[in-house]
Design a protein around this nucleic acid. Structure first.
Length: 434
RNA sequence: UGGGGUGUAGGUCAACUGGCAGACCGCCUGACUGUUAAUCAGGAAGUUGCAGGUUCGAGUCCUGCCGCCCCAGCCA
C-alpha cells in the first residue's frame, strides 16, 4: 500500500477523499468524550482533525490526550469537505505522530494580551492568524513594488548600509570601522541613488534604514525599510505623478490579491477602494491656511506637526500631497523653487485616516553653487559630500525622487494602530530582542 | 527629551473612605460520540514592579527608583 502524500493545508481541496499526511502545530484541542478535535496550523492555513475513539488504535487515542498547544505533529487521515470546519476541510485521523512536545505554559492564548507581553513573545506571536495576514500583505506589497518598477524599466540598485557620515542630520548609529574611524548605519540611500540615476537613468533602492531618533510613537521604528526611486529628468510634478501611480498600484494589488487577509484584519476595504489617481494637491501655503481655518496655530515657515497633518487630510478619501515647503523646514539637497525662493520643490504625501506622512520627495538641487552654499549653511562636513557635489560638476541634470516608508504604508493598508506589527522583529528605542 | 497614564495569579482585569487578595481565560482532575474560544463539576495557582516611609493595620496614602503605554518633537 503506497504511503499517503504530504500535503499543505492550502492544497487540501485537491485531495478530498484521499489519505494524506499533514504536518503542523496544534492550535487548539476540544474533546467530547469518545470524539475529539484538534485544530492544526501549518502556515498555509488551519484545518480541523477529527479523532474518533472507536476508529483508532488505543495508542493513537491515548496520544491525542498528550496534545498541547503548539505541539508539532504529523497526522495521517482522509480529507473530507466539511463546512463545519474552519477552512472548509477536515481530516478523519487514522495515525498521529508527535514530532515535538510543547509545555503547557505556552504564553500566547487566543485572548487579549498587552502589547509589551506580545512583543516579548514576538517569536511566538508571529504564529497567530492576524500576524500571518499582516506578513502576507507586507510580502504582497514588497512584490508589487518590484513588479511596478521592473515593468517601468527601473533598475534596482543596492546602496551601502555602512556609510561615512552622510544623509540627514539627526540620529546616526555609529560603529567602529577598521582604520577609518566611525562608520554609520545608513539613514537613506538617496545620495547614492542620485549617482546611480546619472549612470542608469531610472533607478530605485529598497533596503533597511536606521535612525537613532528617540521617538516613541506609533509611526516610528529605529530600523525600517524604505523604497527610494530616483529619476533622471523628472521634475517635481513628474515626481508626484510617479508617487501617485506607485501608491495606487500597491493598494490596488493588495485589493486584488489579498482581500482575505484584509478581511482577517477587519480592514474597512471601502476606505482603500477610493485610493485612485489623481491624489489631492495642496501648496504648503494653502495647507497652512487650511490647518489654521480648522483651529491650528501653525504659522507660515513652521514644519507641519502631526495635528496639522490630521487637519489637512480630514475627510480626504485618498492621499494628499503637500507641496513646496519653506527651505528652512527641509533638507539641504532639495531644489530651490524658482517661483518662490523661500521654498523648495518638494512634497510630502499624507495617507488618509490619520496615518500621516508615508512619502517625502523632492526635486534635487542641481546647481553646484547653490548646493555648496546649502551644505555650508547646514554646517555639514564638506569632504564627506565632495563626491555628491561632483554629480553637479560633471554633467548636472534635472532629477527627482522620493522615499516611501514600507512599514507606514503597510500599516495604513492594513489599518493597524502601530507600525511595530508590520515588521517581523521590530526595532525600537527600548526593544532589541527577540 | 517633555506632558499624561499605568504596574495585582501564566494572561486580561477587579478590590468603595486604608480593614480577610478576587473573577474570567489558560492549566490540572473527572463526565460527555460533531465540537467551533465546546459544555458541566471540582482543583492548583500571589513577595500586589523594587526600596524606603506614615499607620494598630497599606494593593490602596507619601518619597525615590524601575518597566511599560499614550501624546508631542524628530522623521518615512
Amino acid at each position: 500500500m503506497p504511503s499517503a502524500p504530504f500535503v499543505r493545508i492550502a492544497e487540501l481541496s485537491a485531495h478530498v477523499g484521499q489519505p494524506v499526511v499533514m504536518r503542523g502545530w496544534i492550535t487548539h484541542v476540544r474533546s467530547s468524550g469518545k470524539i475529539a478535535f484538534a485544530v492544526v496550523r501549518d502556515g498555509t492555513g488551519v484545518c480541523q482533525t477529527v479523532f474518533v475513539k472507536g476508529q483508532l488504535t488505543p495508542e493513537v487515542w491515548t496520544r491525542f490526550s498528550e496534545l498541547t498547544t503548539e505541539t508539532s505533529v504529523a497526522i495521517t487521515g482522509e480529507v473530507r469537505a466539511e463546512p463545519r470546519s474552519p477552512g472548509g476541510h477536515e481530516i478523519g485521523v487514522t495515525e498521529l505522530a508527535i514530532i515535538g512536545t510543547s509545555p503547557v505554559d505556552y504564553p500566547i492564548q487566543p485572548k487579549e494580551h498587552g502589547i509589551d507581553f506580545l512583543l516579548d513573545n514576538r517569536h511566538f506571536w508571529l504564529r497567530s492568524p492576524r500576524q500571518r495576514a499582516i506578513a502576507v500583505i507586507r510580502n504582497e506589497v514588497e512584490q508589487a513594488i518590484h513588479d511596478f518598477f521592473y515593468e517601468r524599466g527601473f533598475l534596482r540598485v543596492d546602496t551601502p548600509i555602512l556609510t561615512a557620515a552622510i544623509g540627514e542630520r539627526s540620529g546616526l548609529f555609529a560603529t567602529e570601522y577598521f582604520e577609518e574611524g566611525q562608520a554609520y548605519l545608513a539613514q537613506t540611500g538617496q545620495l547614492y541613488g542620485e549617482a546611480a540615476a546619472a549612470a542608469f537613468g531610472k533607478i530605485y533602492t529598497f533596503g533597511p534604514t536606521f535612525r537613532a531618533e528617540k521617538s516613541k510613537t506609533r509611526r516610528h521604528l529605529t530600523e525600517f525599510w524604505m523604497i527610494e526611486p530616483e529619476v533622471a529628468w523628472n521634475d517635481s510634478n513628474a515626481n508626484m505623478e510617479l508617487q501617485e501611480d506607485f501608491i495606487s498600484f500597491l493598494v490596488q494589488r493588495v485589493l486584488e490579491r489579498r482581500r482575505a487577509e484584509l478581511v482577517e484584519l477587519e480592514r474597512d476595504i471601502s476606505k482603500l477602494e477610493t485610493v485612485k489617481v489623481p491624489f489631492i494637491r495642496l501648496d504648503y501655503t494653502d495647507a497652512v491656511k487650511l490647518a489654521q481655518s480648522k483651529g491650528s496655530d501653525v504659522t507660515w515657515g513652521d514644519d507641519l506637526g502631526a495635528e496639522d497633518e490630521a487637519l489637512i487630510v480630514e475627510g480626504a478619501d485618498r492621499p494628499v500631497f503637500v507641496m513646496n515647503y519653506p527651505k528652512e523646514a527641509k533638507a539641504f539637497y532639495m531644489k530651490e523653487n524658482p517661483d518662490d525662493p523661500r521654498t523648495v520643490l518638494c512634497n510630502d504625501c499624507l495617507a488618509p485616516e490619520g496615518y500621516g506622512e508615508i512619502v517625502g520627495g523632492s526635486q534635487r538641487e542641481d546647481d553646484y553653487d547653490k548646493l555648496l552654499h546649502r551644505i555650508k549653511e547646514e554646517g555639514l562636513p564638506l569632504d564627506a559630500y565632495s563626491w555628491y557635489l561632483d554629480l553637479r560638476r560633471y554633467g548636472t541634470f534635472t532629477h527627482a525622487g522620493f522615499g516611501l516608508g514600507l512599514e507606514r504604508t503597510v500599516a495604513w493598508i492594513c489599518g493597524l494602530q502601530h507600525i511595530r506589527e508590520v515588521i517581523a522583529f521590530p526595532r525600537m528605542m527600548h526593544r532589541l530582542r527577540p
